[in-house]
């Protein structure tokens, strides 16, 4: 028996919105520790890694490890039928071929359930090595989304260049070029407005706008985003989901031919 209950359906809606651009379907691996998902996008350029800890749920029970293959568009349809503040309970029997989502309104006057067929997905798990990154940048998630959106108008790639002075986002295309520089904040009123850079070595890497834009669909999940970079390894874009877990995106850099 698997049962996971979350007080506000909106958190799960935000998670789905954050991954359904990149993934058509995905396997949710459920264990006593929580729910995990790891999947590459269709073109195998990026990797999505989601972890929701069991202690972040209002109620969580997982008697046996289970993998639920789900179509994310179907799941989104179901979650669109819930109100943001509905309590959601995800339920499945051991070895079941369906999963049930139950939504309860706050005043309990409306209870709905949706049963969805599970899919058998070919799982390809990748081992993600521990890396000591040369640069770790923390910045407001909204600011990162804004910069990626703005620069995407001008080019197909964004060069992210991090030094101890700050981080620079650059692009160029048919109409010209664009640069956005962010300095590390020395003082800030709110922690979520801070730009903080931890640099061992300066790094400059190039990434495809298309994927960076897809990652920023996670912006509603967190105030801050963390970018981790080292030469010749994938960028990690991480959003912490408050009290529940994290969503990480890995993106292979573009390299000179």
């Amino acid at each position: 028996m698997f049962e996971a209950r979350l007080i506000n359906s909106v958190t799960f809606k935000k998670v789905l919105d954050a991954i359904k651009d990149l993934l058509n379907e995905a396997s949710f691996d459920c264990s006593e520790a929580g729910i995990q998902l790891q999947a590459m996008d269709n073109s195998h350029v990026s990797l999505v890694s989601l972890a929701l800890r069991s202690d972040g749920f209002d109620k969580y029970r997982c008697d046996r490890n289970l993998t639920m293959g789900m179509n994310l568009a179907s799941m989104s349809k179901i979650f669109r039928c819930s109100s943001n503040d509905d309590t959601v309970t995800i339920k499945a029997q051991d070895d079941a071929d369906t999963v049930t989502f139950m939504f309860e309104s706050k005043k309990q006057e409306k209870i709905s359930d949706y049963e969805m067929k599970l899919m058998n997905l070919d799982q390809e798990h990748l081992g993600i090595p521990d890396t000591d990154f040369s640069c770790v940048i923390r910045m407001p998630a909204g600011e990162f989304a804004r910069i990626v959106r703005d620069l995407s108008q001008f080019g197909e790639s964004i060069v992210i260049s991090c030094t101890k002075e700050g981080v620079k986002f650059s692009t160029s295309g048919d109409i010209g070029s664009a640069n956005v520089k962010l300095a590390q904040t020395s003082s800030f009123e709110k922690e979520e407005e801070a730009v903080i850079i931890e640099m061992q070595e300066p790094v400059t890497l190039t990434f495809a706008c298309q994927y960076l834009n897809s990652f920023t669909k996670a912006t509603p999940l967190a105030n801050q985003v963390q970018l981790s970079m080292s030469d010749n390894v994938p960028l990690v874009v991480e959003y912490q989901i408050p009290d529940l877990g994290h969503l990480r995106y890995y993106l292979a850099p573009k390299i000179e031919e």
Binding site: V45, L126, I255, E257
Partner: peptide, 14 residues
Amino acid sequence: RTKQNRISHYFKKT
């Protein structure tokens, strides 16, 4: 010119 590597170039299957 730049080329786009795949993520599996960096992370191996387990």
